[in-house]
Design a protein around this nucleic acid. Structure first.
Lengths: 356, 356
DNA sequence: CTGAAAGCGCTTACAG
DNA sequence: CTGAAAGCGCTTACAG
């Protein structure tokens, strides 16, 4: 009574029978291999394939070829801001090259290990890691995989293993570019609403680097860092909102704020608006990102853009190249350059006139 | 010179040899099957498994069991607002039940077909569709799969095939609840910034339903619909911004706006702010969503929440149940109820006093 | 309780 | 140019 398979899927034997040849010949024709079958045989086989609607069973193929045309992807958070763009890039490139992607979410090292085990069992051809935690200690299992010959790329997590391909954004440059933009506009009291900084426990590499870029830009311009203008806010709009409230209690306000990322920037702008400050007339705001196809703020946010989707595309391209044994696929570190996108949230400081 | 597999992965034969039994016995012990091996044999086998670090090859297993413990997921847009939450729910549930998810993005019917073909070839055990277009004509290939015995669930796309499980949000209720909330606050001039409406070509079911819910609520309250207060804005903040500007040019302004979703609501609020209107003192705004873990607006947005992640979880639960042949897995339509979440963006209309 | 045999659906040397 | 044989690594009746 219940639904069931109407007819079994045809196998290569069915095709062979119908075309009156052996399965080997069918296989060879379909793979386009060696002793090219005669034109006649080929046509008969193709006709049989067509007639039966035959498609090779990928599982059976994998068993013998030891290739699955599948890439494993391990990410730490699906709902995080970077993930959709990265996945989108990976999936797009993979699909184009006739690979598919198997996805597992892993929140910590233990889950990462488990994911890797599943990927090994399912015989993926390569794995891409996009996990942002900075725990370094136990990452040996990644190196281990690489040494076994698995193509691997790690996105946004500096491992430092020369055998593993890394794709990273230049976070130092992001901090520098954002800050230099503000300096260029004439600002000298520039606050930074930072991400989760170390060194205790969980930390984000990017946050530390962007802060360093901020300091570097100030130093280059001969400006001192006022530590009061430095505030940690994690990576949420809500905490950024509070952090900004804090900044606004200072005796001497900043004239510009560099927010560690766009999400944080939204919180900053909301706090400014709530407190009655006009952006950018009284206070400028610059973010960093590229996560959102569309992040609408009023005024539109000036931001340092990172090519996130491109990172995904390159990751897929690299592992596929490695699977296919391309020479170009030797592991190294790819650094993606950020780019300033100026919109309405930044402008000269209110007292810029007095400088002239 | 180049990296290569250090040692071949151990097979069931290696284990058998080491434990001095046959591969069949190893398999039976590992599966926990029938003629339970003697305690002694079992221990010897387990020890051998441990010593060699043996793990069964999932591909080989799949070939004989005709099960891959893999669910195929087809989505139309990775960067769309619903997707991350849905995927997160699916992946979480799947992982818990030891399934993995194979992901393919398909922008149109042709790509969907191709994706389905890949899934068939790779022998996924079930497929989940999360594709939002409303093209109905060619969806027969989905019914076809179902009739072949593939467990299938479709999220957010009313197919109307009783053989296919559907998970949908009650979009009509969303429109009704949002509007009733505003009516309850005393509003009578309520605008609606709608999504992409049909009937020409591409359209979103949800947008149409939410609009219907809006109309229904107004009708129930004995309020006439002022068609001037109805404006289509797609699903982007930017277009919502423009649409709102339009509304603000009306001779008689609305005192409240129901935005078809949260993204649109952001555009609406930005436009109001830009034009100098205070929310909610002068104009109230209500959205709908659940897409964002955190959507920060100032003031915080009142919204009709949809349990998006839950939809993903249920989709996975359903197909896995069906794969395992559970009786509970008969296809039907699951409707997820939305829930009003009141925050700061809605309040009584400015002239509410005059009603008393 | 344990093992030999067959088979899942392919591909790949190797003969002829 | 084509086919028989072996094998990929498992599981599943079936004997014993």
């Amino acid at each position: 009574m219940t639904a069931q398979k109407v007819s079994k899927r045809p196998t290569i034997r069915d095709v062979a029978r119908l075309a009156r040849v052996s399965p080997s010949t069918v296989s060879q024709v379909l793979r386009g291999h060696k002793g090219y079958a005669s034109r006649e045989t080929t046509e008969r086989i193709l006709a049989a394939v067509e007639e039966l609607g035959y498609r090779p069973d990928a599982i059976a193929q994998s068993l013998v070829t030891a290739r699955t045309r599948t890439i494993g992807l391990i990410i730490s958070s699906i709902t995080g801001p970077l993930f959709p763009q990265v996945l989108s890039g990976i999936e797009q490139e993979a699909r184009q090259q006739e690979y598919s992607v198997l996805l597992i979410c892993a929140k910590d090292i233990e889950q990462e290990r488990a994911a890797v085990q599943i990927f090994r069992d399912k015989r993926v051809d390569a794995v891409i890691f996009m996990t942002t935690s900075r725990e370094q200690p136990d990452l040996a299992f990644i190196s281990q995989m690489a040494s076994e010959g698995y193509p691997i790329v790690v996105i946004n997590r500096p491992l430092g293993d020369p055998a593993i391909h890394e794709i990273v954004w230049d976070d130092l440059a992001i901090g520098r570019i954002a800050t230099e933009h503000l300096i260029g506009l004439g600002h000298s009291r520039i606050a930074h609403v930072a991400g989760t900084l170390g060194p205790t426990g969980y930390s984000y590499w990017a946050a530390v680097e962007r802060l360093a870029g901020y300091r570097q830009a100030l130093a280059n311009a001969g400006l001192a860092v006022d530590e009061q203008l430095l505030i940690e806010a994690g990576h949420s709009s809500a905490r950024a909102f509070e952090a900004t409230d804090h900044l606004l209690k200072l005796a001497e306000l900043p004239t510009a704020i560099f927010a560690v990322d766009d999400t944080v920037a939204v919180g900053v702008m909301n706090a400014l608006q709530r407190a009655g400050y006009r952006v950018p007339q009284e206070i400028s705001v610059v973010g960093a990102g590229g996560a959102y196809d569309e992040l609408q703020t009023e005024p539109p946010l000036t931001t340092v853009y990172m090519p996130i989707k491109e990172a995904g595309r390159r990751a897929a391209r690299h592992v596929i190249g490695a699977i296919d044994g391309h020479k170009s696929a030797v592991p190294h570190r790819e650094v993606l350059a950020p780019k300033l996108r100026i919109h309405g949230s930044t402008g000269p400081p209110p007292d810029v006139q007095s400088y002239h």
